[in-house]
Design a protein around this nucleic acid. Sequence first.
RNA 1: GUGGGUGUGGCGCAGUUGGUUAGCGCGCCAGAUUGUGGCUCUGGAGGCCGUGGGUUCGAAUCCCAUCACCCACC
Length: 378
Amino acid sequence: MAYTIVATEGNAKSADFDTVHGRVRTPVFMNVGTVAAIKGAVSTDDLQQIGTQVQLSNTYHLHVRTGDRLIKELGGLHRFMHWDKPILTDSGGFQVFSLSNLRKIKEEGVYFQSHIDGRKIFMGPEESMQIQSNLGSTIAMAFDECPPALADRDYIRRSVERTDRWLLRCREKLRHLNTLEDTINPSQLLFGINQGGIFEDVRIEHAKSIGALHLDGYAVGGLAVGESHEQMYRILDVTVPHLPKDKPTYLMGVGTPANILEAVERGVDFFDCVYPSRNGRHGHVYTNKGKLNLFNKRFEKDLRPMEEGCGCPSCRSYSRAYIRHLLKAGEMLGMRLCVLHNLYFYNTMMSEIRLAIRSGSFKEYKKNKLDSMTAKEN
RNA sequence: GUGGGUGUGGCGCAGUUGGUUAGCGCGCCAGAUUGUGGCUCUGGAGGCCGUGGGUUCGAAUCCCAUCACCCACC
């Protein structure tokens, strides 16, 4: 399990991260498949074609439906979903935030009400680790609380302290689980999560505190939840330098292509976001000339591909007019073609970013990319 | 042919003891969406209330005629 920085340019870095499920080249965009599937009828075979390196799945969602014990019994998540490359599982911490009307947070953990059938569920650090161990993902995320962007300083402090205590319990539990005979992945890695809202000193203090724990990677969480882009970039500016440099840095849930370029420049090398898949399902597609909403009438007779010259499976065969028709007709194929294109766009951008950093031209690449994407010629 | 019913934005409807800018759902046109509940939310356009006449200060609403469609009976 080695993390090797291959090239740097300013604070931007490109690294090779070796795991039991193969090498991850960073910066990387992980494709989000919350319930062990990328929404929009995207298969593992598709992912090979569009250059996916890592898939992300979710602890909470797989726990409440289908169940981690069943998945373990069936040989773990990799075998279950026929994917032999790295998988990162989110801990369920974010669901504390996103399903906040259904939860109660206490020192021992969180009491949820299942969004599926309403039954009461308890999840704390140990439970989250147990579930992730059952799933056998490559990387397990620590169980944290992601407080709202507007939470006051006092709440954030107490929340971060609790998240810190939870992190120790996570590490302890996972160490134990990794030694068990029947564990699916005895090499399962653990990433800690930095919190602190938009308070720089809390962020820095927390970064130092988790950095001392010798974890396998470090994430910055609690961003892109309502604060401005400027605030997010400022937090990255002050936080990332305090995270261990010999471990991967992961910015959770971010973001737009522009967000990613800015974060790469600040030293982040792992990303994930629902944008390409969710927006794809809603007919919003990314191109080098800006975002298109294929529901728009102006594409009614547009026989061009979503992006001219694009090598994705959708653009190689289908027109904007056809995809618009499919979307308006509610056909799943429409969503699928858009999602494939968007993931290809993101994955390709990351590949270009890696090349740029490795050839010392990232700054120029970033500028050109941002300029062209805001051109809006379509 | 006789009797009854219905005609209100693209579609389906609400609104009739006559009263300020005629509503709603869907659709349409746009915009949001950041560790995903195939959602959700926010705006916008669009109607001479079947047609013609009448009563009235005022008609989608009352009266007459007419046209179209539906049902029943012949």
